[in-house]
């Protein structure tokens, strides 16, 4: 009877939880996250339109960043091809809506499945290769897809892209229009929360622990009986899935998709977010997104060459703390604890 000794099982189980070094969080983290979530929910209606639009963008890109953290931060695979899946997600939605007349949910599902399939296929080839070769092959994949998206303009609209009329959001009991910015705001927030919950679950699960073993020592992990290739492929697909979801939401927000979604920016940005925020922390990459987006929003307004400052900023952050901002906060906390 599985129910009979469940109390006993739970108690012994909880003793197993504490054995794992918590990399993601400490006791306060759930409360901090909850507080942040509540603030984001509450300020939604009061934000000025420009800022609200920026927050929506940040929330959507956080999904992209957290997914990429699974790849770079947890399995140490530095892919330069993430724009492939961002673009695929975007076109998944755009094409499903404009050609198939799909409703919003169906369009999102198509976009995500397309990203998963593509991540699986490219992953089969790329993940076999190690380190530098992996970076190169993903960069090659990026070029192929970017050039294809430009040249196949009959399908993609090329640089001009394809505009769509976003269907209204059907919730069963009511229909909401995403043309209302506030609906868009909570729509993005919903997916951010779902993604965050799924990814924290994954990171704390046996799968996540195997990812960390692979990052720490992939050779030794093989000798423990793990098919490392398969696990790296799972990480690659997860990153592709969330990149695709993010691209889909981004296309819905802009109400169009163009070859620009496949551009190199969307392959480099995830690396920047994860590195400056802190690899292997999930929250860190989100902080990276916030910093980069705020920077772009405010600084680009008064100086077009703001990317130079961004570059210097990245170098300074990584010089001071190779583990990014979250890594820096953690190590400071650790020192305080040791002293006390």
């Amino acid at each position: 009877m599985p129910f009979k000794d469940s109390g006993q099982g739970l108690r012994t189980a909880s003793s197993g939880f504490r054995e794992f070094k918590s990399r993601m969080s400490n006791k306060q983290t759930p409360f901090v996250m909850l507080a942040v979530a509540v603030v984001v929910i509450l300020i939604g209606p009061f934000l000025p339109p420009g800022l609200r639009s920026l927050v929506i963008e940040i929330m959507i890109l956080c999904i992209f960043a957290m997914g990429y953290d699974i790849l770079l931060g947890f399995t140490d695979q530095c892919s330069l091809g993430q724009s492939i899946f961002f673009g695929t997600g975007a076109y998944g939605v755009v094409l499903a809506i404009s050609y198939l007349n799909a409703n919003l949910w169906l369009a999102l599902i198509i976009a995500v499945i397309a990203s998963i399939v593509l991540a699986f296929l490219t992953g089969l080839i790329a993940v076999r290769l190690s380190e530098a070769y992996f970076v190169i092959i993903t960069a090659i994949f990026f070029s192929i897809f970017y050039l294809l998206s430009l040249s196949m303009s009959w399908l993609t609209g090329g640089d001009d892209g394809i505009s769509i009329t976003v269907p209204s959001l059907s919730l069963g009991f009511t229909e909401l229009s995403l043309y209302n910015p506030l609906v868009n705001y909570y729509f993005a927030f919903f997916f951010l929360i779902i993604s965050y919950l799924i990814l924290t679950r994954v990171v704390g699960s046996p799968l996540g622990k195997v990812f960390i073993s692979i990052r720490e020592n992939s050779e030794r992990t093989k000798f423990l009986g793990y098919n490392v290739f398969r696990y790296k492929l799972i990480a690659f697909i997860l990153a592709g899935l969330f990149a695709g979801l993010s691209g889909a939401l981004y296309a819905i927000r802009l109400r169009y998709g163009s070859a620009d979604f496949f551009s190199f920016d969307w392959s480099v940005l995830p690396i920047v977010w994860v590195l400056i925020g802190g690899t292997g922390t999930l929250i860190g990459p989100c902080i990276g997104v916030v910093i980069m987006s705020l920077f772009q929003y405010y600084v680009s307004a008064w100086w077009a060459q703001y990317l130079i400052i961004v570059g210097v900023l990245i170098i300074v952050i990584l010089r001071v703390s190779p583990k990014g901002i979250v890594g820096y906060i953690r190590s400071r906390k650790g020192k305080v604890k040791e002293k006390g």
């Binding site: 189980a13 909880s14 197993g16 939880f17 504490r18 054995e19 794992f20 679950r201 994954v202 704390g204 699960s205 046996p206 799968l207 996540g208 622990k209 195997v210 696990y231 799972i234």
Partner: peptide, 8 residues
């Protein structure tokens, strides 16, 4: 590879 339970 279970992604749904806590490792502990």
């Amino acid at each position: 590879w279970n992604p749904f339970i806590h490792a502990g």
